[in-house]
Amino acid sequence: MQADVKLDTLGYFCPMPIILTSKKIKELVPGQVLEVISDDEGIKKDMPAWCETTGHAMVGMEEEGAADKKVYKAYVKKA
């Protein structure tokens, strides 16, 4: 998936990925897509929940890597 801005949160646990996302999204203009890269499995549920509350659109979630070292890529479209 194509993103306008990337945010690397590798190595950070909850709540940091969400907090960093909420800060980063402010730099985007509506319609742009932010790619959040995380290795915290919680992001799979947390990012859609964050989007639901804040009104931004969850447009994709990708998983990469082996089972014990998974990297998640969440795509959020700014409302």
Binding site: C14, P15, I19, W50, T53
Partner: peptide
């Protein structure tokens, strides 16, 4: 964590 998470959710 709840406080900062909630604040990040607006």
């Amino acid at each position: 964590i709840i406080a900062t998470g909630a604040a990040a959710m607006g």
